[in-house]
Design a protein around this nucleic acid. Structure first.
Lengths: 139, 139
DNA sequence: TCACAGTTTAGAATCATTCTAATCCCGTTG
DNA sequence: CAACGGGATTAGAATGATTCTAAACTGTGA
């Protein structure tokens, strides 16, 4: 009961802190994304999910929101498939297994994998991030 | 002069060996792709290039050919950008620097980088390939 | 040379994603 | 608490890369 009132501020605070106005749509999407940990979604899958939950949010807003959350550091975009973009709720240092046939991503903790020998980038360039994708297939 | 006759078979043999009928278009594209080493092209860029060389090849054929060459093991597809696919003429073990702002890929020799600690994939899955992308930006 | 299976191609179609312009609503102000 | 102002949402159009389709074309073996 007090639940609604008491928890109302949760996602709201998170969004405010990120400089995003806590609108109904953003609160709903944040609720789905950050309720459980380490989720991997596509715009389409998240839209289906929020729609399935009986909440009306346009696909355009899902795209906008995913990008805004990404810019705000709440999500990380994962590029592993030419066909679609994934967004990961785990923004920490980690890598992925990718099962292309099923569009499935599995986290690999950052401490697990070590990439050694990355050469210095050409003059005028600096390293932004090192991504490792372990592509797997059904045996 | 004998050049045309003598060299005619080069790309042709390569294509035949790959199980691909050496058509005018495939020979032209293979010529551009494999004349110099370690090239990174997109369908669009290769189409512009072949067209600029005065050869008439449709964009659809460029796409078909890139995929056929990839399946035949002559090319490797590189997925680093959500917007477009790159194809790499270097099919050996190596990784990449990627300068997103300019759509530029730079090879990193395979021996240079070492990825340690890749965990065993979940049951029923086996590792296909480990890709490392070092994302860089202008300083 | 003939015939046919594999190729090419123009243009339509598709798919994910972005844009547009109108409408809506969050938060502040009076 | 109503009005307001600017950011947010949205339906639908637009875009851009890629794929598909159906028809025309061309290597290649006989």
């Amino acid at each position: 009961m007090g639940k609604t009132l008491r928890e109302k501020g949760k996602g709201t605070v998170k969004l405010r802190h990120a400089g995003l106005r806590p609108t109904r749509q953003r609160v709903e999407l944040a609720g789905l994304l950050f309720k459980s940990c380490d989720r991997h979604v596509t715009a389409e899958s998240l839209h289906d999910e929020v729609t399935g939950a009986g909440v009306k949010v346009s696909l355009a807003t899902v795209y906008n929101t995913l990008h805004q959350f990404t810019e705000a550091g709440l999500l990380r975009q994962v590029i592993v498939d030419a066909a679609r973009s994934y967004f990961d709720t785990n923004t920490g240092d980690h890598q992925h297994f990718f099962l292309e046939s099923e569009g499935m991503l599995i986290d690999i903790p950052g401490e697990t994998i070590a990439v050694a020998g990355v050469p210095a980038p050409p003059p005028g360039l600096s390293i932004d991030r090192v991504d490792v994708v372990v592509r797997v297939r059904r045996t």
